[in-house]
């Protein structure tokens, strides 16, 4: 479904990504692993159209080319991003944020149904729907951010470190919600610090290091990979 080929991103002279290629199949959950500064956010932003990749890259959703298309049209094509830091509209209420999630033409007709689904997934948002999101806790804001992305009825949902800064209880709640989203058949592309939890959720994963793809495989094989274990799962090399 999503096909990313030879993607490079630079910020001025600084090269953040070099020749990265990934794929996500329909309904598949894929995780991107990598240390801080490896280029994970740059990858998601380039797919979302928020940063321009270097010439020669190819991003396509089901053969519809998306390279060089502005972010609002990428969303219209069916890819939603929950960015690092959430990117919600702090001064607006929960329900206004969700309404805006369905601003895209692709989502307007199904908005009432999708709103019900979001409220089912995050019942806590129902009683808070008239609250300004800036006044809510980090976990609740993350629910708004994910809910807002779901309102656009995406075919692929991208999440950039959704558990960052959340209390452990909240992280558990977040991952069970993501599992439900995944079981509903939506494709996921997720960048996470909670590597163990995200490998449990994912079918496959890629490993980024200093802007280059250095490994990939099924979630099970990555869990067993000594490099991954040492770097991300906090295990000793010989364990």
């Amino acid at each position: 479904m999503l096909d990313v080929a030879r993607l490079s991103v630079s910020y001025g002279k600084h090269v953040a990504l070099t020749d990265v290629s990934i794929r996500v199949a329909t309904g598949e959950a894929v995780v991107i692993l990598g240390a801080n500064g490896a280029g994970k956010s740059s990858l998601l932003k380039a797919i979302a159209g928020l940063v321009q990749p270097a010439p020669g890259a190819g991003v396509a959703l089901d053969d519809k080319p998306l390279t060089g298309i502005p972010a609002h049209e990428v969303l219209e094509a069916g890819i939603a991003l929950v960015p690092e830091g959430r990117g919600i509209f702090g001064d607006l209420t929960v329900s206004e944020n969700l309404d805006l999630g369905a601003y895209a033409h692709r989502a307007r007709k199904e908005a009432p149904r999708n709103r019900d689904l979001v409220y089912q997934l995050f019942p806590r948002l129902v009683e808070r729907r008239h609250q300004r999101v800036a006044t809510m806790s980090g976990g609740e804001q993350q629910m708004v951010a994910i809910g807002r992305a779901l309102m656009s009825a995406p075919r692929l949902l991208m999440l950039d470190e959704p558990s960052l800064g959340l209390a452990p209880v909240m992280v558990g709640e977040l991952f069970s919600a993501l599992k439900q989203i995944r079981h509903a058949g939506m494709a996921l592309l997720i960048v996470e610090q909670s590597v163990r939890k995200s490998l449990d959720l994912a079918d496959r994963g890629y490993v980024l290091e200093a802007g280059r793809m250095v490994g990939n495989g099924t979630a099970a094989s990555l869990r067993e990979d000594p490099v991954v274990q040492r770097a991300f799962l906090g295990m000793a090399a010989d364990a």
Partner: peptide
């Protein structure tokens, strides 16, 4: 409120 976030919802 947040111009940089507007494209994320298709605005």
């Amino acid at each position: 409120v947040a111009p940089q976030s507007a494209p994320l919802v298709g605005i």
